[in-house]
C-alpha cells in the first residue's frame, strides 16, 4: 500500500519551501496503463486549469466569454478556468521524480514545461519539489525561478488529447520508459504505431520527440516504430548539433544517472514531426 499514514505525516511535516524527501514518496514501480485508475483529467484541454500549476502565468485580465458564442449552452462551454499568458509546450512523459524537468526549467525560462506521471506519490513529489524550488529561487537568481515547471498525474497512453490541443507541443521526452519485455504486452508500450499518431497530433510540425533507454531492444523498437510512422522522421548527425536539451536529457534523468553509475549504455534517438500530407 502506498503512503501509509506515517509516511504521509512525514511528507506533511516539512516547512514551506523545504524540499520534499524522495523516501516518503516511493511507490511500487509498475502501474497498469489499461486499468481505470481513479484519474482526474479535463473533459477537453480548454477545461484544464493550468493556473493551479503555473500561477505566475495566469493572465491578469480575465477572459471574457463572448456573449454571442454560438456554442455556449446552459451547461456552458466556458469552463471557468483562468486564461494563461502561455501554454505548455514541453512534455516529459513518464517523468518519474522529475530530474529532467528541473534541469530543463532554467535552460528554457520562457517555456512552460510539464511532467506527466501515472504514479500518484511520485507526481506529488515533483509538485512539492517545484513549489519548494519556487520559494528558494527567485527569477533573479535562477532564470524562470522554476515558475515554468510543474507536473500532473496522468495516464498519457489514454488521455494525452484531454490535456493538449492539436500542435500545442514543441517537444516530447520519453525517457527510460518501462520496457514491457514480455511479448504479449507490446500494446502496453509507450511507443507503438497507433500511439505515435497521438504524439503526432499534439506535436507541431518541426517539433521533436526525444527517446532514451538503456534497453537496446526497446531502443530498436522505438526507432523502428517512429521511423515507420509517416508523421515522423529520425534526426541524426549534424542536425542534432546545437540541440542543447539533448545533452540535458542524456545526463539529467534519475534513471539515466543510475545507468551511468552502473556503467550501462544509453541509447538516444530524436525524431521530428513532419507536416501532414496534402489531402489526396
Amino acid at each position: 500500500m502506498a503512503g501509509p499514514p506515517n509516511k504521509r505525516q512525514k511528507r506533511d511535516d516539512k516547512q514551506e519551501g523545504q524540499m520534499p524527501q524522495k523516501k516518503f514518496y516511493r511507490q511500487r514501480a509498475h502501474a497498469n496503463p489499461f486499468s481505470d485508475h481513479d484519474l482526474t483529467y479535463p473533459e477537453t484541454p480548454e477545461a484544464m486549469n493550468w493556473g493551479d500549476h503555473y500561477p505566475s502565468y495566469v493572465a491578469t485580465v480575465p477572459a471574457a466569454v463572448p456573449k454571442d458564442d454560438p456554442v455556449a449552452t446552459e451547461d456552458g462551454n466556458d469552463y471557468g478556468v483562468p486564461r494563461m499568458t502561455k501554454q505548455v509546450e514541453v512534455a516529459d512523459i513518464g517523468c518519474g521524480f522529475g530530474g529532467l524537468l528541473f534541469a530543463l526549467a532554467p535552460k528554457m525560462p520562457e517555456t512552460l514545461i510539464l511532467g506527466l506521471e501515472i504514479r500518484t506519490s511520485v507526481t506529488e513529489f515533483v509538485q512539492e519539489k517545484a513549489k519548494a524550488l519556487r520559494v528558494q529561487h527567485s527569477p533573479e537568481s535562477v532564470p524562470g525561478g522554476y515558475q515554468n515547471v510543474s507536473c500532473i498525474r496522468a495516464n498519457t497512453m489514454k488521455f494525452l488529447p484531454n490535456f493538449f490541443a492539436k500542435a500545442q507541443l514543441s517537444k516530447i521526452f520519453l525517457c527510460f520508459p518501462d520496457p514491457h519485455f514480455k511479448a504479449r504486452k507490446h500494446k502496453a508500450r509507450i511507443v507503438s504505431t497507433t500511439l505515435n499518431s497521438e504524439y503526432a497530433f499534439v506535436v507541431r510540425p518541426g517539433g521533436r520527440v526525444y527517446t532514451i533507454t538503456d534497453v537496446e531492444d526497446l531502443h530498436r523498437w522505438m526507432v523502428e516504430h517512429f521511423e515507420a510512422h509517416p508523421s515522423f522522421e529520425r534526426v541524426e548527425g549534424e542536425e542534432l548539433e546545437g540541440d542543447e536539451v539533448l545533452k540535458v536529457m542524456t545526463t539529467e534523468t534519475e534513471e539515466g544517472k543510475k545507468v551511468e553509475r552502473n556503467g550501462g549504455t544509453k541509447y538516444v534517438a530524436v525524431f521530428t514531426r513532419l507536416e501532414d500530407p496534402p489531402w489526396p
Partner: peptide
C-alpha cells in the same frame, strides 16, 4: 501486427542496468 511478431525480446541481465528494469524483466 507483423511488426510485433518480429520483435524478439532478448533482454538479459547484461542489458538491464537498473533495479527497476531488472525486476520487471
Amino acid at each position: 501486427k507483423t511488426d510485433e511478431a518480429t520483435f524478439k525480446p532478448s533482454a538479459t541481465n547484461l542489458t538491464v542496468h537498473t533495479e527497476r528494469n531488472r525486476k520487471a524483466l
